[in-house]
């Protein structure tokens, strides 16, 4: 049985990619299952999706812990999430990146297929949505499914969801990505760390979960503890602040949904907190003196 774990961000269509791969595998004679990580993540937040493929009926309903392959829709996720956790060393990784295989460090030396799926998507679809293109790279890297089956799977899932024409275009994106995919071996120098989680015992857990602010081995929990969650990693665009143009009207400070803009120097100027800025662009849009500009992060 092959198990595939997709690493994407909310809104990038990782679940649709997993489903299209299942459909492709089905066309190749596999029994295939695709499912999301059942969470409630919002746009931009790291998310997971899974595909299982086997020659016989797949009865296993638990989550995937030791994937044969991981598919990474955004190479910046490598620094955020332990993308190679549990990855079978005889498997492979597929990464959307501008880097070469040798420049990718997954904390283990493993077969890796790379493609600049974002550029492919922009060229073919006109939008930077990479969930179809990346499947072409998957076919090229793993050989588990043919590119023809991937195209069919995309026509099936994407076509059914967003229209026949869009399905066709996405199939084309996969084909272009297939042709451009370079397969090599990743570096294994980085120490991959999984995010620590607070897992108290029954005895440690506050009664009825009525929780005060407290420090745990995984950081702060309780009131005001969301600061532990650095949402800056969600960003694709980043505000660049030109202090000279700023008139301190404070509209950006007021409008920031994250509170990622701070008054500093006794209220004389502003500072952007990139730990949390999600790059929504409201600040730049609303700045009356155009002192903020959004650039690709």
């Amino acid at each position: 049985m092959y198990e595939v774990r997709f690493h994407g961000r909310g809104g990038q269509g990782a679940v649709m990619a997993a489903q299209a791969l299942a459909s492709a595998a089905f066309k190749e004679g596999y029994y295939a299952v695709a499912f999301p990580y059942f969470g409630a993540e919002r746009r931009g937040a790291p998310v997971l999706a899974f595909t299982r493929m086997d020659k016989q009926k797949i009865r296993r309903k638990n989550q995937v812990y030791n994937p044969s392959f991981v598919v990474i829709l955004d190479d910046r996720l490598i620094d955020l999430v332990n993308v190679s956790e549990g990855l079978n060393p005889s498997g492979a990784a597929v990464v959307n990146t501008r880097k070469s295989p040798e420049e990718i460090d997954l904390g283990m030396e493993i077969k890796v297929g790379v493609v600049d799926a974002t550029s492919v998507a922009l060229e073919v679809l006109g939008v930077p949505i990479t969930n179809s293109a990346i499947l072409g790279a998957f076919a090229k890297t793993t050989g588990v499914v043919s590119i023809e089956a991937v195209e069919e799977g995309i026509r099936d899932i994407f076509g059914g969801r967003i229209g026949k024409e869009a399905g066709e275009k996405n199939a084309k994106a996969a084909r272009v990505a297939y042709d451009r995919t370079v397969v090599g071996t990743s570096r294994g120098e980085k120490k991959m760390v999984s995010k620590k989680q607070w897992l108290p015992t029954v005895q440690e857990l506050p009664l009825g979960l009525a929780t005060r602010s407290m420090e745990t081995d995984a950081g702060l929990v309780g009131p005001g503890s969301f600061v532990e969650n650095k949402t800056g990693s969600w960003r694709t665009f980043k505000p660049v602040f030109n202090r000279d143009k700023c008139v301190m009207c404070l509209l950006c400070w007021f409008y920031c949904p994250e509170g990622a803009i701070k008054r500093v120097d006794g209220g004389k100027t502003l500072e952007f907190d990139f730990d949390y800025c999600k790059g929504c662009g409201i600040c730049a849009e609303e700045c009356p003196t155009k002192a903020i500009e959004m650039v690709r992060d």
């Binding site: 009825g208 009525a210 929780t211 005060r212």
Partner: peptide, 9 residues
């Protein structure tokens, strides 16, 4: 003495 009660869990 702030407490959170009933979080999405």
């Amino acid at each position: 003495d702030p407490m959170i009660i009933g979080s999405f869990t």
